[in-house]
Computed example of a mutant assay.
Amino acid sequence: MPMPDASLLGGSHGARWTRHRRVFLPVWLALVLLAWTLLWAWSLSPHARYLDHGGWTGPLADLCRTLPGGGWWLPTALAALAWLLMCIAMMLPTTLPLFDVFERVTAGRADRGLLLGLLGAGYLAVWGGFGLLAHGAHEALLAGVARLPWLADRAAWIGVATLAGAGAFQFSALKYRCLEQCRTPLSFVMAHWRGGSPRWQAWALGAHHGLFCIGCCWALMLLMFVVGMGHLGWMLVLAAVMAAEKNLPGGRRLSAPLGWALLAAAVLLAMRA
Rank of each mutant, 00 (worst) to 15 (best):
M1P: 02
M1L: 07
M1V: 02
P2R: 02
G10M: 01
W17A: 11
R19A: 14
R19T: 09
H20Q: 06
R21L: 15
R21Q: 11
R22S: 08
F24G: 01
V27T: 12
W36I: 05
L38I: 15
L39D: 02
L39S: 09
L39P: 03
S43W: 02
H47I: 04
R49P: 00
D52P: 08
G54C: 05
L60H: 11
T66C: 02
G69C: 13
G71R: 10
A79C: 14
A79Y: 05
L84P: 06
M86V: 05
L92E: 09
V105E: 08
G108N: 04
A110E: 15
L119R: 06
G120R: 04
V126L: 15
V126I: 14
G129P: 04
G131M: 10
L132Q: 13
A134N: 10
H135N: 12
H138G: 12
G144F: 01
G144N: 06
A146M: 00
L148D: 03
L151W: 02
D153A: 14
R154C: 01
R154N: 10
W157Q: 09
I158W: 12
G159E: 12
Q170D: 00
F171C: 06
A173V: 12
R177V: 13
R183W: 07
T184R: 08
F188T: 00
H192A: 01
G195I: 05
H209G: 09
C213G: 06
G215Y: 02
C217A: 13
L222S: 06
L223D: 13
G228S: 06
M229H: 13
M229I: 10
G230P: 03
L236F: 09
V237H: 04
M242I: 14
K246G: 03
L254S: 00
S255W: 01
S255K: 03
S255N: 14
A266T: 01
R272I: 07
A273D: 00
